[in-house]
Computed example of a mutant assay.
Amino acid sequence: MSGLRERQKADRHRRIIDAATALFREAGYEGAKIEAIAARAEVSIGTIYNYYQNKGDILGAIVSMEVNEVLNAGRGVVASPPANVGDALDTLIGIYIEHSLNYLSKEMWRQAMAISTQLPDSPFGQAYTALDRELTRQISALIARLQELG
């Protein structure tokens, strides 16, 4: 039974994220309302608040999903980098840039950065900083790997 319950919970979460992503792109972060996200996701407003405290937390979840996908794509470059240092860094950073607009528009990234700098001690600000650190660690891992390879 718990398997079904977990699948339903994951499905609701995915629908909320998908709805918010679409509405943030269409109406902008400020223009997207929790009520509209709930309607598009086919969940109640209360369900959204069971998952997230506010709209910024939803944006944070989308940012986290985006960055984690970027990190996963970058792992392949770190594991098997181009021999040339410049090419290796270009490849890794190219993945970051190319992938950065899959879920988030430029306006959404600006909003995420604004929230993280205005509220650095908030859960969103701390999560955003942690994701930035992971990207930095991956670049450092690439450099270390290149050094190993000579």
Rank of each mutant, 00 (worst) to 15 (best):
M1Y: 12
M1D: 14
S2R: 14
G3H: 12
G3K: 10
L4N: 15
R5M: 12
R5T: 13
R7I: 06
R7L: 09
Q8H: 15
A10W: 00
H13G: 12
R14K: 13
I17L: 15
D18Y: 06
A19I: 00
A20E: 07
A22C: 05
F24H: 03
F24Y: 02
R25K: 09
A27F: 04
A27C: 09
Y29M: 09
G31Q: 04
A36H: 00
A38K: 00
A39S: 08
A39M: 08
A41M: 06
E42N: 15
V43Y: 04
S44Y: 00
G46Y: 06
T47V: 06
I48P: 06
I48V: 14
Y51C: 05
Y51V: 02
Y52C: 05
Q53K: 08
Q53D: 10
K55E: 04
D57Y: 11
I58Q: 13
L59E: 00
G60Y: 00
G60H: 01
A61I: 00
I62T: 03
I62N: 08
I62M: 03
S64N: 12
S64F: 08
S64L: 10
E66I: 01
E66P: 02
E66S: 14
V67L: 05
N72K: 11
A73P: 04
R75E: 14
V77M: 04
A79Y: 01
S80D: 14
S80L: 12
P81Y: 11
A83M: 13
A83H: 14
G86V: 00
D87N: 13
D87V: 06
L89C: 02
L89A: 03
T91Y: 08
T91D: 13
I93V: 14
G94I: 01
I95M: 10
I97R: 14
E98H: 07
N102Q: 13
N102R: 15
Y103C: 15
Y103G: 15
L104K: 04
K106P: 07
E107N: 06
E107F: 06
M108L: 11
M108P: 11
W109Y: 11
R110C: 12
Q111K: 15
A112Y: 02
M113V: 06
A114H: 05
A114K: 08
A114W: 05
Q118F: 02
Q118T: 05
L119V: 09
P120Y: 04
P120H: 03
P120I: 00
D121R: 05
S122C: 06
P123S: 05
Q126T: 10
T129F: 05
T129V: 01
T129H: 13
A130F: 04
A130Q: 09
A130L: 07
D132H: 15
R133I: 12
L135H: 04
T136P: 01
R137Y: 13
Q138K: 01
I139E: 10
S140T: 01
A141M: 11
L142K: 02
R145Q: 15
L146W: 07
Q147F: 12
E148K: 02
E148A: 07
L149D: 08
G150L: 00
G150A: 02
